[in-house]
Structure formats: C-alpha cells, structure tokens
Design a protein around this nucleic acid. Structure first.
Length: 852
RNA sequence: GCGAAAGUGGCGGAAUUGGCAGACGCGCCGGAUUUAGGAUCCGGUGGCCGGAAGGCCGUGGGGGUUCAAGUCCCCCCUUUCGCACCA
C-alpha cells in the first residue's frame, strides 16, 4: 500500500460527500433528532485556527451522534451585517456587500477544505433580504405588542464607530469593538423591552444545568435583580404645602430608614435643574453641578473618582421619622440605576459612612448586632464608630419598629409604607431595555415610516422586506448613511398615502444572531420566519458551541427572543440551547491571534503541509475543549506522526484481512494474546464512547485511541504479521482467530477515529473492504464481559504506602485478597514485628494493611 | 475590594465515586536500521540515595479529617476570569 497522502485522500472524500449530499437532513419523526450548532461566523476575511477549533468540536460531536443513530442537524451560516464591512468599503472605495460576499466565498472554501459535515444546503447569511425581512417582521410583531418602542434617551455613543451602543456593548466604559471611551448622547432610539422578561430570564437560569456555571453567574449579575422598596421623601418648600415635589428613592435596606440622615441626588437628577433655576442665592451651584456631570464617565462608574458632594440648601421629609433631612448632590449616585436618588444611612452603609464623615453629617445608629449587650453601647458608638455596620441585628431608635429583627423587617416596613401611601415594595434590575438603533448602513433597516400627518407608522407586513438600497461608493460620512439616500428616505405614508420619510437607522446586528438557529431549521421558508412544526422537531439546540465572549450579549438576547417566539406561539420550549460549551481560545506566543500582532496561523498552510485531518486531530487532542491552548508546530507534527502510524497499521492489517463478512468472531479458540487485544478493543470502545458522549472530553478520547494503536502494533509484531511493504501472499500463516480479532480491533479503531479524521478513516474503511461509508456505519458497541480482564492486578499498601502488587483472578473474594496480601513477602517485611491492626480490602481495587 | 475557577514532571495534559499520581502526546536519552542525515521501529524518561534489590521524598505553601487525600475541610500564596460605587 502507498504512503499516507492526505491531500489526495481529502479531496477525494470531500468530493464524494458533496456528491452524496451526505450531511443534508430532513425531519424524520421515527428517529431521535440532535441539533448540534456552532456559533455562526462573522465573515471577516479569513478563518484562523481558533475558528477551526470551534468548528471541529461541533463536527466531532455531530459525526459521532450520526453514527449513534441520531438524525443530526449541523448547519452553518454567516453573521454578515456589521461595521467592519462599512469600514472596509470606505477604505477600498467599494461597497460593503461586495466585501462581505467575497469574504464569505473565501471562508467557505477554507471550511470546506476542513471536511466539516455541515448541511450546506441550509447555509444562510443575515445580509440576505430573505433573512433580514424576518428581522423586520419580528420587529413589527414586537411593536404591535409594545415590546419594541421608541423613546428619547441618553445613549452610549461611540465616536469612533459613529454609532450607539447597547449597555451590554459597553465594556469597562469603552466600546466593546474598538475600546473608545463612550460618550453620552440624547437621541430618539428604538428599544426592545427585554426587561419585560427579566424575571423569566433570571428564573430560567436555574434550569440551565448543562451550561457552564461561569456563564450563568455572568447572566445573573447582568440581570442584577435586587429586591427592596421605593420610598418618597417630600421636598420641604418654605410656605408651600400643596403639590410639592417628592424625591423617590430606591433602597434595599428600608429597615435602616430611621437612620437615613441625608438624601443624595445624582447630578443628572431632574430636580437638580429645577433647584438650579431658583438657586440664585447659592453662588456656584450650576458650576458645581456641571463639574460633576463632566466627570469622566468611566471613572465615575468604577469608583476611581473621590466621593464628593454638596448641599443644595433644600430639605425633605423622612416619611418614617417625620424629621427633615438635607438634600445633597453626590457624584457617586448613578442616574441610570433606580430612581437616581438614594437615602443615605451613614451608620449602616460604608459609602454613606465615608460621605458623612467627610462632610460632618449626622450618623444615626438604628441597627444593633445581636451580640452587643446594650443599646447605649451602640448609640454612643454612633459618634465614635470607625466603620459602618451593614450586618443583621435588632432595630433600635426606629419608632414602632424598635426591637424587631432585621430579618423580615424590611419586607414589613415596605408594606407599611404602601398602606401609608409613602412608598411600596419594589424590584430593581441592572438590566436595561435593549437599544437597537444603529446609525449605520450595513444592517437591517428598521421598518418604520414617519408621516407628518399620521405620525409614526409601521411598514405594512405585505411591504416587507424594506430592502437595503445598494450604494455605488460608500463614504461612511454622516450619522445615518441611509439618510443620505433620498430614494430610500422618501416614501409614502401607508395610512394617508401622503409623502413620508423612512426610519434611517438600522438594527443592531445582535438582532440577526438572536434567532438564526431557528431559521436553519426552515431556511427557505418565504411565508414565515420558520414553520413552528419544523422547529418543534429540531428545537431546541441540543449542543451549542462557541466563545465565552458571548456569555451575556448573544446568549441573553437569544434567550429573550426564544421567549418572544414562545409568546407568539411559534416555539414550545423554554430555552433555546440545552447544553452550552464555551471553547477555549487558541493562543500563539501567549496572545490571541490577530492580524496586527502578526501571529495568525493560517489553516490553509497547515492543510497544505499536513492535511486537514492532522490539523483537526491536533486541535482536539492538545487540551480539553474548554481550555485555551497555545499553538505549537511540534504538536501538529506529533498528530501527523500518529495518523501515519494508523495508516501503516491498517495497511499492515489489510495484508491479512480480506473479507469483513468472513472475519467474524465465532467459535474460534482464542489464546491469551487474542483475549488481551480483544479486551483492549472493548475497553477502548467503552472509554472513547463515554469520553465523547456525554463528557465531551475529546482529548482523552484521542489518548485512548493512541493506546489502542500502540497495543495493535505490538500485537501485529507478536503474531508475526508481514510488515507493511513486505512481499507476501495474503493471509499466509495467519490463522482465523488472529484475523477475526484483528478485524474487530481495526474496524473499531477506524470507526471511532472517524469523527476526528473523517477523510483518513473513510479511505481506510474502504480499503478494509467495507462497502458503506464509515459515517453511515453504526458506532461500535462494547461487550462488558469481553472488556473485563480474567486477571487483575491489585495494589497492596502497608499503612497507605504501596508495597506490592498481587495478580489475582478477577472474581477473587475479599477474604482471598486479605490472606494473599498479608502473606506477600514484601508486605511481611514491613509488618514483621508489628501488630496488624486492620486490613482494609476494597474488592478489585486495593488492599491496605494497617500496622502499629 | 467582592465573587468564582484553577495551580500536577522540562512542556501540553491524564487520574469518571476519596483507593497504584504522572495515562496519552511533545521534548530529551539510549538501542536497532542507515554510507550519512532524515524517517521508521524498540526501549527509557518526576526528584534524591543506591551497583542492584530497594528506600526516601513528591500534585503552590501550612494545618486537619481518613486505613487511605491531587481529590474532602480550614488558613495562606499565586494566576486567570467575572463583578466592581447598583443604594
């Protein structure tokens, strides 16, 4: 047989798979379905070995599941809208679509050379009107239900990208894409009411048992639910009793309200401007407010700025104590959380404590720890305490509530506030509604029309899609590129048919990626986003694989959309992704691969040198899928060496194996060597099967296969099989038992290796005389009786230290083990002259002789 | 600062339920083969002592539980990730 020539083999099998449409599937109610999905790709230009790793994990799982009898949906597509296309267009003086389509073509070629088992007939690109029209459809559905709405608001603005960012897209105060520090701007924006589902999204986390705990924690933090109360503090105006202003605060510690000695406003709080109008007598008021507002946003958010504030001179009424308290403006109070106003309780909150000490504001103790003997001790401490006390305890100096335990007091006091009409229990979330308006060209047009007479009008469903107009040359200037295109902007009102203007913002591309996994199920449907019955068959996604960088953005939006579709009656499941695996990055020289660092490893070059199978195997073997890996060429060579070894082993086996149907195990007598290799074969099947499913420990599955190959080499040598390349007549001098045992082992090896290196294994499978493809052959099953050894080696310890090994029959009894262990010579050397206090026997595992 | 995860040979990593630490691979060393190199095959490879048999030590550090700890508990160190004035 010839040498291993990956290039020839890989091309041959990729062609055959395509001809056979081997990976295209349709719904089949008689077979269990399995939806294996990798996160679709942004067509940036070139796939690198990091992408390859992601896609390989999915491919190994998909191919293995197919062999295990599942009807496997394994699609791929393109997250094709987005800013880089616009930037590239400006740079190349072309248009975003050309750039995008060329990149898709190139990357698709790269992926196809890897031999991934995608159902390419379901490929989609979000920039196709046939896809994004359903973004528009869904937007209108949400608009009808009040889930999409428009409001003027302060938004995060990235000056470099010249667009708005969602809260989720602001990372450490900068743009998630380019890290430019975000500014705040007032704009009319479209929002999706994700907060409507805040509790559902939070509760659902409990049921995502097959997601990494880390991702769940991040989502919990992001939603940031806190229970507390809203309480209104009436502003005390000299001489005015009616219709006076109120400051509503949110607190999680209403049980400390008797200690609220000052109310703090965010500099952006609406009342601040009102106060400023009448603050003529207070010089510098406006200037100081301006100073606070101008503070660097990131610094304010992260606490890098010193806590400062000043007295407005106004006072309000603490509705529980009936006492007036001063109103201050403080730079650390956030306008966007809660009500933008807080009650400060210096004695029981560290921030407030520091603030009070700095400005010499009163510290009123109202909670006393259970273990402090007397109230006096703490009342005294109010003036001398060095730190706040935020723990539990008993309420003191709290009117009718004094003596109560903090446990349960907060809930009751919130209810009391409600009956008195001064507040109510309330829940706050960190999660904000999702701003989706983007002042960009390359995205889904928002299907809304503005008419001077009729106002805001949704585009009628039968006018969808609102197509993105082509542009000849892309300048990228102006806030909303679509606004520069009169043919697009000018339209007629669907209601009065008078002249009207289209919305010129496009949707955040995360809208596109929030439901693409449903579209794959029914990709060419032109009547609906998807047929609910079809998604009912394929959904939810059983196994989803992608980078942890999407832990909050994409994965929370998709869970949100799943619920919207459920409420539209289009899906029945609660969660879109049953199991999530976040694969580790591929690093080189300790850094993420990027063009600018010049450390990108191009998969095409690796395929050229070693073949796709070697690259595939290497990336699966080097570490567990979740871990990040450091790229090494040496490791790749090792994988190539292993595959060459497999090739030679099977070639050698082919010299003596002729007919799969005849070489079966039946009544042959097997000697020890035969039994040993059968044991190894079945043990390997057991290990590889469970390593792949459900454990997804792909690296140890490969290790087990390497061990099997090593043993098979030794077996061939021992049985005197002619070596590869030697002159021989088939099967000369090789008995039927040896051939049957070898056949079983080599077949199992090739089958189990095939999800990793499908081209090589298809070729070897064919050479082994099989007529069906390796991928259509059922996964091998293991026989526990065969995997079980006749004899086992049991370690013997004396006082926990290994002293001997006993080779005993597998069905040895505890008593026999005990006797044999104590009698063993090396054991006796360590027990002589001592008392055997105890002998611990763990059947089939270990003996420990305890001496004194 | 708070929270979580991790820390195992020269390197990547394995050890599924508390039961032989270091599977498998890389690298290195030796042997066979070879004109030579490469490739291949076989063997060795945690540290220390020893000619060997064997012994001692060993999973970031320190304590503990247990017949038995990489694994469980407590304290500490380091790294990574997440959160970071959220009232």
């Amino acid at each position: 047989m010839s040498d291993y020539d990956p290039q020839a083999i890989e091309e041959k099998w990729q062609r055959r798979w395509a001809e056979r449409r081997a990976f295209e599937v349709r719904e089949d109610p008689d077979r269990p379905k399995y939806y294996c999905l990798v996160m679709f790709a942004y067509p940036s230009g070139h796939a690198h070995v990091g992408h390859v790793r992601n896609y390989m994990i999915g491919d190994v799982i998909a191919r293995m599941k197919r062999m295990r009898g599942f009807n496997v949906l394994h699609p791929f597509g393109w997250d094709a809208f987005g800013l880089p296309a616009e930037n590239a267009a400006i740079k190349n003086r072309s248009d975003p679509e050309t750039w995008t389509r060329e990149n898709i073509a190139h990357m698709k070629g790269q992926l196809q050379r890897l031999g991934i088992s995608y159902a390419w007939d379901r490929e989609l690109a979000t920039c196709d009107a046939s896809y994004y029209r359903w973004n528009q459809w869904l937007f209108l559905q949400m608009f009808e239900r009040g889930l999409a709405y428009r409001r003027r608001s302060t938004v995060n603005w990235c000056a470099s990208c010249a667009t708005v960012l969602a809260n989720e897209q602001v990372v450490d105060g900068g743009c998630w894409r380019c890290a430019t520090v975000v500014e705040l701007r007032e704009l009319e924006q479209w929002f999706l009411r994700i907060t409507e589902y805040a509790d559902e999204l939070l509760d659902g986390i409990e049921r995502l048992g097959e997601w990494p705990a880390k991702v769940l924690t991040m989502q919990r933090n992001w939603i940031g639910r806190s229970e507390g109360a809203l309480v209104r503090f009436p502003v005390v105006e000299a001489g005015v009793d009616e219709n006076r202003d109120e400051i509503e605060v949110f607190t999680t510690r209403i049980d400390t309200i008797f200690g609220a000695t000052v109310v703090l406003l965010a500099p952006e709080h609406p009342l601040v401007d009102r106060f400023a109008e009448t603050a003529a007598d207070s010089p510098g008021f406006r200037e100081r407010v301006q100073q606070f507002r101008a503070l660097d946003r990131t610094d304010r958010m992260t606490g890098a700025v010193e806590k400062e504030g000043f007295d407005t001179g106004r006072r309000c009424l603490n509705p529980f104590t009936g006492q007036t308290v001063p109103i201050w403006i403080a730079n650390f109070v956030l306008a966007e959380y809660g009500t933008g106003a807080v009650m400060a309780v210096p004695a029981h909150d560290q921030r407030d404590f520091e603030f009070a000490r700095k400005y010499d504001l009163p510290v009123q103790v109202v909670i006393q720890p259970e273990d402090v003997a007397t109230e006096e001790a703490w009342s005294l401490a109010g003036d001398t305490m060095e730190t706040s006390y935020a723990g539990p305890g008993r309420l003191v100096s709290s009117g009718e509530f004094s003596g109560r335990s903090t446990l349960g007091a907060a809930a009751e006091m919130a209810r009391v506030a409600e009956t008195r009409g001064i507040g109510r229990p309330a829940v706050q979330y960190r999660l904000k509604d999702w701003g989706i308006s983007r002042q960009r060209y390359w995205g889904t047009p928002i299907p809304i029309i503005y008419c001077d007479t009729c106002g805001l009008q949704p585009v009628p469903y039968d006018s969808l899609p609102v197509e993105l107009p082509a542009v000849a040359e892309f300048s990228g200037r102006g806030d909303s590129p679509l606004a520069q295109i009169p043919e697009f902007v000018n339209t007629t009102c669907p209601s009065c048919h008078g002249p009207a203007r289209r919305e010129t913002d496009t949707m955040d591309t995360f809208v596109d990626s929030s439901w693409y996994f449903y579209r794959y199920c029914d990709p060419s449907n032109d009547q609906a986003a998807f047929d609910p019955e079809t998604v009912g068959y394929w959904g939810p996604v059983d196994f989803y694989i992608g980078g942890v960088e999407h832990a909050i953005l994409h994965l929370i939006y998709s869970r949100f959309f799943c619920r919207v579709f459920k409420h539209l009656g289009m899906v029945e499941h609660d969660e879109p992704f049953t199991r999530l695996l976040t694969q580790g990055m591929v690093l080189r020289d300790g850094a993420v691969m990027s063009k600018s660092k010049g450390n990108v490893v191009d998969p095409d070059q690796m395929i050229e040198r070693f073949g796709a199978d070697t690259l595939r195997l290497y990336e699966m073997f080097v570490a567990p899928p979740e871990k990040e890996i450091e790229w090494t060429d040496a490791g790749l060579e090792g994988s190539f060496r292993f595959l060459t070894r497999v090739w030679r082993l099977v070639s050698r086996a082919c010299h003596v194996l002729t007919d799969p149907a005849a070489e079966t195990l039946g009544t042959q007598t097997l000697d020890d060597t035969h039994r040993a290799i059968r044991r190894k074969t079945h043990e390997s099947i057991r290990r590889v099967s469970s390593d792949l499913d459900p454990r997804a420990h792909l690296n140890t599955a490969v290790s087990a296969l390497m061990e099997l190959v090593n043993d098979l080499y030794a077996f061939c040598e021992r049985q005197g099989l002619p070596s590869d390349g030697a002159d021989h007549s088939p099967a000369v001098g090789v008995d039927a038992s040896t051939r049957a045992v070898l056949r079983e082992a080599v077949d199992a090896l090739v089958l189990m290796l095939s999800p990793f290196t499908p081209h090589l294994c298809e070729e070897l499978w064919e050479r082994l005389g099989h007529t069906t493809g390796v991928g259509e052959t059922p996964w091998p099953s293991y026989d526990a009786a065969v995997a079980q050894a006749d004899e086992i080696v049991v370690p013997v310890q004396v006082n926990g230290k290994l002293r001997a090994r006993l080779t005993v029959s597998a069905d040895v009894t505890e008593e026999e083990l005990r006797t044999a262990a104590v009698a063993e010579e090396t054991v006796r050397a360590h027990t002589d002259g001592k008392t055997i206090a105890r002998v611990v026997v763990v059947r089939r595992k270990l003996v420990n002789v305890v001496v004194r």
